[in-house]
Design a protein around this nucleic acid. Structure first.
Length: 651
DNA sequence: AGCACGCCGACT
DNA sequence: GTCGGCGTGCTC
């Protein structure tokens, strides 16, 4: 150990240790700033860590050295460190995992020796030079803060929204402040960059996980110095270190992509609101707001600017329960509509939200359903390759000839997927060209190519899954038919209805027959009275019914929802931990407990998953209660716990 | 999370 | 007698 040594308290991103700091020595009279990302030896391996502070006193135990330092030009400004710390508490996560969200994915690092030799260690941070924004102030109850952020909501089509966004941005830029645009996915971001670059050429910095290395570094630095004033990116850009942030625009507000898929499950909408509490205006927008957003609007907390609706296509709902109509995949009325459309030279889209041929393959003798050996979920049959495919984990296997349980060899193919729908179309409309767009096709041909082929063909049909939404090259279409809505409605998730409504509305908006014709939208379903269907005609009817149901069942926005997942290889330990957790949650009846129950995917690659849902009124109380009980329950590292606060992906 | 340490079953 | 299973506990 060298003579000149200081000690640093460092937090590591290791689930089991939480926020407990570890002390390391650092060979220099200068110090590393709070939030600096380092690499340290930790229990036989090396781990990433973050400097919390310099140690209060010389440790009495033996210490190890800080080994490497990540490029300090990516050091987040103090107010972002504060923000992430508050978000970490809000999400029941460690500060280290929260701070790791502030750094871009690939940051170069150097050994401490090399950094010292090159002398590019900054002097201790001058408070004057502390960072871009004013120091943050986020109290421990982040909910209290973000619920009071005055959001402006733009409810309408993309051209309507972007017209307003760009005008707002212009005003903010004139005040010498910066603007952040957030989009749910890279594909949508590309469209947004087109709008932005047309209006502000050369002034827009794209922050995207695909942009790495020197380009990323240059953009990052120019945003934090205030040289670049406009940033646009996806979820991870919510933490971009922008100087003098004056406006955050988050487009397509209801998109699930804003919620992080993994620990600590941050939601870019929450991050945007929290940053907005610190002087930046927050603007959300979409064509069909989320139920939560609508609640804010109705209560007058958010102001709403709504576009005049255009006249939509003629709507026909086909009740598949009427056996007269339900036997075929394409019902007689839809068949007639398609005939008429093709005869008058138009195109059609048939939508089905399911890949493959049949949902299930089962033995006619013993009823054994072919299920995934890894996940236990029924597998889907794909006729082209004669394979069964697990749509949960992607496992593929040749379709069995002989039943592994009883030796039978007769199979029942039940349910139908998009390939079967395509086959029926070909049978019913010989001579009408048909194209298919789903993940299986998109693997070999870009969606753009499929759509341009569709557009270059005269009267023709596109059989498509969800992939057809948000495509910018879809040619004019006179008829859109939803072959079945029922899988969308039977998903075991409290947001299933909302997603179905948004899906239907998006599909309805695909109908653009061109001059003179109104176009037609068909929905085939066994649930014709469902509010996701009725809402298509009666406007706000969907939100009314949905809010009423959410209130009765105690779901957001009326109650906070936490999903606590217990994972481990030993099933007994997993179930034991989860039931122990349930028995110890108290909250004096203010916290309702559901479960424990097997998670929707009860077993993934040998790891068993059980879950407990918590519904409560006070976010802070729920976090505290989770923390307290988990500390008591988690005695062994054989069970891992993930707390998903405000869950979005429950499947 | 990793990794080491420690205590019970079938094998060169 | 050992090799190796995984349950338990610790990491500055």
């Amino acid at each position: 150990m060298p003579m000149d040594v200081i000690y640093l308290d460092i937090i590591v991103d290791v689930p089991a240790v939480g926020d407990r700091p570890f002390t390391y020595w650092f060979p220099h009279p200068l110090t590393l700033p709070r939030g600096a990302k380092v690499r340290v030896p930790f229990g036989g391996t090396k781990k990433d860590g973050f400097v919390l502070r310099s140690a209060a006193e010389t440790p009495t135990f033996s210490t190890k050295p800080v080994e490497e330092i990540y490029d300090l030009s990516f050091l987040p400004p103090p107010e972002l460190l504060d923000l992430a710390e508050a978000l970490g508490r809000h999400y029941c996560a460690s500060t280290a995992s929260a701070w790791s969200c502030l750094y871009p994915p690939v940051v170069p690092r150097k050994s401490v020796a090399k950094v010292l030799k090159e002398g590019d260690l900054p002097s201790p941070l001058d408070p004057e030079n502390g960072g871009p924004e004013a120091p943050g102030s986020w109290d421990s109850d982040l909910c209290g803060t973000i619920d009071n952020v005055p959001v402006q909501y733009y409810w309408g089509s993309a051209p309507f929204r972007w017209d307003r966004y760009l005008r707002l941005a212009e005003t903010v830029l004139l005040e010498g402040r910066s603007v952040l645009f957030l989009c749910p996915e890279t594909k949508v971001l590309e469209g947004a960059l087109d709008w932005l670059n047309a209006k502000f050429p050369g002034q827009v910095c794209a922050v995207n996980s695909e942009i790495t290395g020197l380009v990323r570094r240059a953009g990052w630095l120019s945003l934090s110095r205030g040289e670049m004033r406009i940033a646009a990116g996806t979820r991870s850009a919510a933490f971009a270190p922008i100087r003098d942030l004056g406006l955050i625009v988050l487009d397509e507000e209801p998109s699930d992509s804003y919620k992080s898929l993994d620990w600590p499950f941050f939601d870019a909408r929450t991050v945007a609101l929290a940053r907005g509490a610190n002087r930046a205006a927050v603007v959300f927008g979409s064509a069909y707001p989320s139920v939560e957003a609508l609640d804010h609007i109705q209560r007058g907390r958010w102001s709403c600017f709504r576009e005049e609706g255009r006249v939509g296509p003629r709507l026909t709902v086909i009740d598949l329960k009427e056996s007269r109509l339900g036997r075929d995949i394409i019902s007689p009325p839809l068949h007639a509509e398609l005939d008429a459309a093709f005869a008058s030279g138009h195109r059609a889209v048939l939508f089905l939200n399911r890949r493959g041929d049949s949902t299930q393959v089962s033995c006619r003798d013993c009823g054994n359903v072919i299920s995934c050996p890894r996940c236990g979920v029924p597998m889907t049959y794909h006729s082209k390759e004669s394979q069964t495919v697990c749509h949960t984990c992607g496992f593929r296997a040749a379709a069995p000839e002989v039943c592994p349980t009883c030796g039978g060899h007769k199979w029942r193919f039940s349910g139908f997927g998009i390939e079967k729908a395509q086959a029926e179309f070909v049978r019913k409309f010989p001579g009408v060209p048909v194209f298919r767009l789903d993940q299986d096709v998109a693997r070999s041909f870009p969606a753009k190519n499929v759509l341009s082929a569709f557009g270059e063909t005269g009267p023709s049909c596109l059989v498509a899954t969800q992939l057809v939404l948000g495509q910018s090259f879809l040619p004019p279409v006179a008829v859109v038919g939803v072959l079945s809505l029922d899988t969308a409605l039977s998903v075991p998730d409290f947001r299933a209805s909302e997603r179905a409504y948004r899906l239907l509305s998006g599909l309805k908006d695909l109908v653009h027959p061109g001059a003179g014709s109104q176009g037609a939208f068909y929905v085939q379903t066994r649930n014709p009275d469902h509010h996701a269907v009725k809402g298509l005609e009666e406007g706000d009817h969907f939100y009314e019914v949905e809010l009423q149901e959410r209130r009765m069942l105690g779901y957001p926005p009326f109650r906070k929802l936490f999903m606590v997942r217990f994972e481990g290889r030993n099933l007994e330990r997993v179930t034991l931990a989860s039931s122990e957790f349930v028995s110890k949650i108290s909250g004096d009846g203010r916290i309702r407990v559901l479960g424990p129950a097997p998670a929707p995917k009860p077993r993934v690659r040998g790891v068993h998953r059980w879950q407990v849902a918590l519904k409560g009124e006070d976010h802070g109380e729920m976090v505290a209660e989770c923390r307290r009980v988990l500390k008591e329950v988690l005695t062994s590292s054989a069970v891992r716990v993930l707390v998903d606060v405000d869950p979005v992906h429950t499947i």
